[in-house]
Amino acid sequence: MALPSTAKGSHPAHAGKPRVLVSSTSSDSHTWNLVFLQLLLEEMGNDVVNIGSCVPDDLLIAECRRHRPDMVVISSVNGHGALDGERLITALRAEPDLSRLPVVIGGKLGTRGSSVFGQRLMDAGFDAVFEDSAGIEPFRSYLELAPHAVELEATA
């Protein structure tokens, strides 16, 4: 495995492969989750740009413009995920060029174990929310379906 290098941030342009940008939130420094998601996404045939932990909203927006990903995967486990997620997606959706970019979030999003943030985060602008307690399968299925959803939208 080539461990992702956050600051170097560049990536080989793999023609044809969907490009996924993996990022933490502004206040969350956990990285094992990011490495796991990178490995999983690469195995599923994606070209991954992992921009690491403690990513301020402005930097995330700039990286979205720089890398032009097909999808953004936000991960947070420190308990601030719902707060940070709501703020960042509001900021991102306010940018006209990013308002339709597929963005999902997952992890341990609150501090109390079972969380209830799904609807709120969807309303704020995420395309999907994956709670840690549901396991990783729903995400795998989503990824298998996601490209088709984009195709359908393109032809609609």
Binding site: S26, S27, S29, H80, L83, G110
Partner: peptide, 24 residues
């Protein structure tokens, strides 16, 4: 200390306190 204070984002910590949100 909570994660906002850790990264120096005291404004977000104040906002969470004002809104009664959970902090870690």
């Amino acid at each position: 200390l909570d994660s906002y204070t850790r990264v120096g984002d005291h404004a977000s910590a104040r906002k969470a306190l004002a809104e009664g949100s959970d902090l870690n």
